[in-house]
Write a protein that binds this DNA or RNA. Structure first.
Length: 270
DNA sequence: GCGCAGGTAATCT
DNA sequence: AGATTACCTGCG
């Protein structure tokens, strides 16, 4: 157990932000499968958390995973009062952190995400892990390796309710297993090249590629545009969003806007 | 039974 | 280039 203060960090918001599909809320606590581990986190009070792991594990694994050393205050200073809508979004979602997730898991998860709700994506990812992943403990399974999915039968994949995305998952896994694309090597390339390389995967378009860039490669300027963000841009920025003003961190802005519009939709649905 | 949910690729014009 | 359409599956 390791309890500490992490001022400004909002675990609940981060867990339900849609960037990661392996959080479960159990009572007041959160269960997470990542890094080939299973982690329980108890919120104690505002900005204070108890991690069910050693201090050493927290510092070496989870502090980087939760991106706790990135300076999120800098972007807060960029969002001034004249930003109006964005300032409100930031007031709500400023505690969000961009997780540093595994590229393969992120790639496959977002290939699955098309035409699916978040709960449906979660259940698909869990099914894939239970069927093809390495057991971590009695009830929890790591996300499968590319080599395992590359050898899977289509029927077994279809049992995970992934439907027409099965060939996408299979082919992408094969490309990686065969070394046609090296996901680790992509850490070294620039944003534009990374986008192009990711879009070589069948089933990966501009939106999914940007999600992988932001959530797995921590490219803070990647700006995924889905139906929700499209609505925000249409309704709140009819004359265009000032991307130049947030050059380098527009992906974070996207996350604030995304969480805020979804929150509004939950609390006061149309 | 029908329409839609955090899209993509193929196939039009 | 831009618009249209089919597509697995689960849920209301």
């Amino acid at each position: 157990m390791y309890t500490l203060n992490l001022p400004g960090f909002d675990l609940e918001l981060t867990a339900q932000s849609g960037q990661c599909f392996r959080f479960d809320k159990i009572g007041d606590s959160f269960s997470l499968i990542a890094q080939n581990r299973h982690l329980i986190i108890d919120p104690i009070s505002l900005g204070k958390y108890r991690f069910h792991c050693s201090e050493a594990e927290f510092e070496s694994i989870w502090r980087p995973y939760f991106d706790l050393d990135y300076d999120y205050r800098a972007i807060g200073r960029m969002i001034t009062k004249d930003c109006e809508y964005l300032a409100r979004a930031y007031a709500y979602a400023g505690g969000l952190r961009i997780l540093r997730q595994d590229p393969f898991e992120t790639l496959i998860s977002f290939i699955l995400s098309q035409r699916k709700s978040i709960p449906a994506i979660q259940s698909c990812v869990r099914a894939l892990s239970e069927r093809f992943g390495k057991p971590i403990d009695e009830n929890n399974f790591a996300f499968p390796e590319p080599e395992t999915l590359a050898c899977a039968n289509v029927e077994d994949l279809l049992k995970c309710a992934i439907g027409y995305r099965a060939p996408y998952v299979l082919e992408s896994s094969r490309m990686i297993a065969e070394g046609k694309i090296n996901l680790d090597a992509l850490n070294q390339v620039g944003d534009e090249e990374l986008l192009n390389q990711l879009m070589r995967f069948h089933g990966v378009g501009i939106k999914v590629a940007n999600c992988v860039m932001l959530f797995a490669y921590h490219r803070m300027n990647a700006f995924p545009i889905d139906v929700w963000i499209e609505r925000v841009l249409d309704q709140e920025y009819p004359s265009g969003f000032p991307f130049e003003r947030f050059e380098g961190v527009s992906g974070l802005i996207q996350q604030y806007l995304f969480c805020y519009i979804r929150y509004q939709n939950v609390t006061q649905p149309l």
